[in-house]
Design a protein around this nucleic acid. Structure first.
Length: 576
RNA sequence: CGGCGUGUAGCGCAGCCUGGUAGCGCACUUGUCUGGGGGACAAGGGGUCGCAAGUUCGAAUCUUGUCACGCCGACCA
């Protein structure tokens, strides 16, 4: 490609509302243009990157034996009613009516459609297993789209669905996808980690997320540097403290803590460490059958509630935070000074985090405004609580596999694999006949990759003050030729055109900057848009038969003989 | 959905308080010079000041409404 024949626009300044670095860079480099909130146009330059990512994903999926198909972006709402997700999904699901007033949705995911497709045509165990995937635009009406293409409303996703006659076979395919994903993200040149994950609203059992490691990521990942343990903090188990609860040493006392509501404030006021204080969180649960439960969740003052873990406690699922009125009704005290001591066990359930269960002589709210209790002990001052894992792990916690301590980093979720089991197959009657002629429900797996999000994630990892840098596998062009005086010097023009032709013939993705621009402009543009290899051609060097090579991340250029340049570039590209 | 904030040229902003010809930098067009790191000079083009109503002789500016967008929170592959 010659820049004079291409269309790209670069900017010195990013829009003021761009938040993360990849979004700023992509806008400045002219990869994307914002069309509406969370909705972007991929400009030719950015589309080249998107397509390269897409093709790597496609190649590896095909290598793994999956078959590509393309499902509609628009889906009948009926299918969503059939699976039961129509009510569950909420406003994130963009719904609309056609001219006949029939309900449709723009697909945020395709479990329903694929299950419908498979149940129509797959009737026999002989046709299984099968793995179908597509690379398609999805739409999720996010409450707050942000971070450019990393959390847009419209995005490109690879979603694959596998169907099996047995759980064992599903597990086999799941393992194969785990390996395939590992290969894909390695080929993309990303720093990533596979982590055990919560299955979320999609349901099912067995799930891993693939995260690109970046500070701007929206997820916290707990990992053990001394083993291969890694899990989303949503899921990572906080193991019980190794040491048993110390014996009670103090008697319970009421202490005045006027105006000190938050644990940290109470601890500071009393001059103790926050880990000596118990945080009491009031929750309320109202089940479908109408039964209501008020419960207190106890956490150490320096720990945070993990709502996903709490939501898994059957007695209080589903729960929400109690209102001020409910807290007063059950405890006779406003929030801020609530605690677990002397509450009516008939009406109030008490759950303590494992770390709290190991505390003695602790401080907690007194259920009276402006007062806390100190020297509180389970078994003596209040009944033994129900113990559960309720908190987020923190850096330094022991790894659940017992092989060291956990560390925490941020990640961008770019892939997710699930063992869906029979959730959708059962709801949509996706059955087959087994060897004995008996009807059986299929086992399903589902495997997603956020293709457009990967572009953002790759740029989160690959940028500097000059702009974007991407691995050659996904850069918009692998090599750029920047001639000094293309429109002035016949020799330079001839050498540039010749080299451009050679590289193209060699099948190398090359761009020749033949614009009549000043050198500074060309250098700055080529660096901003993320071309990994640069060859500069100038009259000075040409007289010596030399060209100048510089890698995007190298500080200094090196001179290379004209005759050797093709081989040198090939070598560099092979090296990645 | 709650709190806060912002809408003026493609991008970044000033002007608004105190009403009176709509500005600056970047980008764009033309020309001249320049030519190894976003160059200089000159001349240009481009704006329903988010939208609507009101106050006023006169509204980007004041008032009200409305829409959009953003940030924080809640929520979320």
């Amino acid at each position: 490609m010659r820049t004079s024949q291409f269309f790209f626009t670069t900017q010195k300044e990013a829009p003021a509302d761009a938040e993360v670095i990849s979004q700023k860079m992509m806008l400045r480099a002219g990869y994307i243009k914002r069309t509406a909130a969370g909705i972007y146009t991929w400009m030719p330059l950015g589309l080249r990157v998107l397509r390269k990512v897409e093709n790597i994903v496609r190649e590896e999926m095909n290598n793994a034996g999956a078959l590509e198909l393309l499902m509609p972006a628009v889906q009948p709402f009926e299918l969503w009613q059939e699976s039961g997700r129509g009510d569950q999904y909420g406003p994130e699901l963009l719904r609309f009516k056609d001219r006949h007033q029939r309900d449709f949705v723009i697909g945020p995911t395709h479990e329903e459609v694929i299950t419908d497709v498979v149940r129509r045509d797959v009737k026999s165990y002989r046709q299984l297993p099968i793995h179908l995937y597509q690379i398609q635009t999805k739409f999720r009406d996010e409450i707050r789209p942000r971070f450019g293409v990393m959390r847009g409303r419209e995005f490109l996703m690879k979603d694959g669905y596998s169907f099996h006659t047995s759980f064992d076979d599903l597990v086999r395919e799941y393992g194969k996808m785990y390996a395939t994903y590992t290969k894909i993200f390695s080929r993309l040149g990303l720093k990533f980690r596979a982590v055990a994950a919560d299955t979320g609203s999609i349901g099912g059992t067995g799930s891993h997320e693939f995260h690109v490691l970046a500070d701007s990521g929206e997820d916290d990942i707990a990992f053990c540097p001394d083993s291969d343990y890694a899990a989303n903090v949503e899921l990572a188990e906080a193991v019980a403290p190794g040491s048993p609860r110390p014996a009670a040493g103090k008697s319970m006392e009421k202490i005045a803590t006027p105006g000190k509501m938050a644990c940290a404030d109470v601890a500071e006021f009393l001059g103790v460490d926050p880990s000596k204080v118990v945080k009491t969180i009031a929750v309320f649960s109202e089940k479908e059958n109408g039964s209501k439960t008020f419960a207190l969740l106890l956490l150490r003052g320096d720990h945070e509630l993990n709502e996903i873990k709490a939501a898994k406690i059957a007695a209080i699922a589903p729960f929400r935070f109690a209102t001020e009125g409910e807290v007063e009704a059950y405890l006779g005290c406003k929030p801020g000074y609530i605690g677990p001591v002397a509450v009516n066990p008939e009406k109030v359930l008490i759950f303590a985090d494992r770390a709290v269960a190991a505390m003695g002589d602790f401080i907690c709210g007194a259920n009276e405004a402006g007062l806390h209790l100190s020297g509180v002990n389970f078994g003596r001052d209040l009944p033994e609580p129900i113990v559960a894992d309720l908190r987020n792990v923190v850096a330094g916690d022991p790894s659940p596999d017992g092989k060291g301590k956990l560390d925490i980093c941020r990640g961008i979720e770019v892939g997710h694999i699930f063992q869906l089991r029979q959730k959708y197959a059962a709801a949509l009657n996706c059955n087959y006949l087994d060897e004995t002629g008996k009807s059986q429900t299929m086992e399903m797996g589902c495997y997603g990759i956020g293709v457009s999000r990967i572009v953002g994630a790759a740029i989160e990892q690959g940028n500097d003050e000059k702009g974007i840098f991407l691995p050659p596998a996904i850069a918009p062009f692998a090599v750029c030729i920047v001639p000094m005086g293309y429109h002035k010097s016949e020799a330079v023009k001839a050498a540039a055109d010749d080299l451009y032709g050679q590289l193209k013939t060699a099948g190398i993705d090359v761009v020749l900057d033949d614009r009549n621009e000043r050198p500074g402009v060309m250098f700055a543009d080529m660096e901003l848009i993320g071309i990994p290899h640069r060859i500069v051609i100038g009259e000075r060097g040409l007289k010596e038969g030399q060209l100048e090579y510089k890698g995007r991340l190298e500080a200094e250029a090196t001179m290379i003989a004209q005759a050797d340049i093709l081989a040198t570039i090939k070598e560099k590209l092979c090296a990645g």
